[in-house]
Design a protein around this nucleic acid. Structure first.
Lengths: 192, 192
DNA sequence: ACAGTTAATAGACTGCAGTCTATAAATCAA
DNA sequence: TTGATTTATAGACTGCAGTCTATTAACTGT
């Protein structure tokens, strides 16, 4: 697979890729995902349109790289298993995620939309973005169950879908996704 | 507001609207939302493209009418408050909704996506489709709480968001939305 | 130096969404 | 009947996504 080595030919211009991601990041943040055309990104990066298509299939693929992978944000790091309760850890994790959404909520909504119209992107988005974050919460809830913070009859995977589903539902419906929501979700998950 | 009466002019051709909705319904079901162009719908309905734009702003608005309002399906009717437990009523409601999704899941995903790219449609979609269905579940959970099937510390509104969120999350991630999910969701909501 | 190879570029081209204009058709009021 | 009004229609036009082609640039091995 990756054994394919190139033995000649013009080398890929790494700077072009970087310029494109940077331009995409800036333009999307300042104008909003929908109002940024592919031509505008290429132009801002000072690169031919086809060069962009050589690297990414769609605007969504580029923005996933530019906004959600490149910037190391949007917390992929599991919260440290400190002395705090798992409930507190869940709330802290959600607050962190929601803080990032205050900045990049628009592109995230756009990517979820794009994933509905493009099967290939849906798979990539799910594997690179959705699943890792789902796993963090599932693991946290399993720990809570092991510690006895969560009843033994509860299903951590279903609960994790509840948590992520609730915030997607809010986000996609244009309702606030903030610290109050983080608190309410956490309270409900651990309610008895 | 609605006092505006027309005192002359060519009357609206109601048949054109019906043809358009019918054509949209058929084409979307057989080809999938994304593969149906507005021109194709107008053409199939035997109507000028502008006539479609006279009635709906976007394909999404038309399909919302054609697929989710016209067909009286997708259960807007609250389940009768029979002798059954609220848990059983919730599961039955979800099974009914998910059955419809087996037929019209594709356009629903597409409409959720469209709502992310079009503020006006998001509002319309939310008011005409999302909120009524959310209300049904919220009411059902309140009844459950009144009956003692659900603990007094639980929050029916948050739980309703959990329920809808979980199934949106599954739907939007391309995972199965079936009777097994209806059962799992219900079990988790009423778990203690 | 030269042939082979791959990337970058400019530009043409198609298809669709959405807007706009001119014209024809259907109605009401006088 | 005439004029005003509104809808329906056909067609032109713009802007963007996505594809394709021809040309030029940068590198490797001989």
């Amino acid at each position: 697979m990756s054994g394919e080595k190139k033995q000649g030919g013009r080398p890929v211009d790494a700077a072009a890729g970087r310029s494109l991601k940077l331009a995409a990041l800036q333009l999307v943040r300042e104008r909003g995902y929908a109002k940024v055309s592919i031509a505008a990104i290429a132009s801002a990066a000072g690169v031919a349109r086809q060069t962009l298509y050589n690297r990414w299939n769609t605007k969504a693929d580029l923005v996933l790289d530019a906004v959600f992978e490149e910037t190391g944000r949007f917390s992929t790091i599991p919260p440290a298993d400190t002395g705090e309760t798992c409930a507190a850890q869940l709330e802290a994790f959600l607050v962190e995620v929601f803080d990032h959404l205050a900045v990049d909520g628009d592109p995230l909504r756009a990517l979820i939309a794009a994933a509905q119209e493009d099967t290939a992107f849906r798979t990539a988005f799910r594997e690179r973005f959705v699943l890792p974050r789902e796993q963090i919460v599932t693991d946290l809830l399993r720990r809570a169950q092991a510690r006895g913070e969560l009843g033994k009859t509860r299903d951590p995977e279903m609960l994790s879908a509840f948590v992520h589903g609730a915030f997607w539902y809010r986000l996609l419906n244009g309702q606030p996704v903030d610290a109050a929501l983080a608190r309410a979700i956490t309270a409900e998950v651990f309610a008895r």
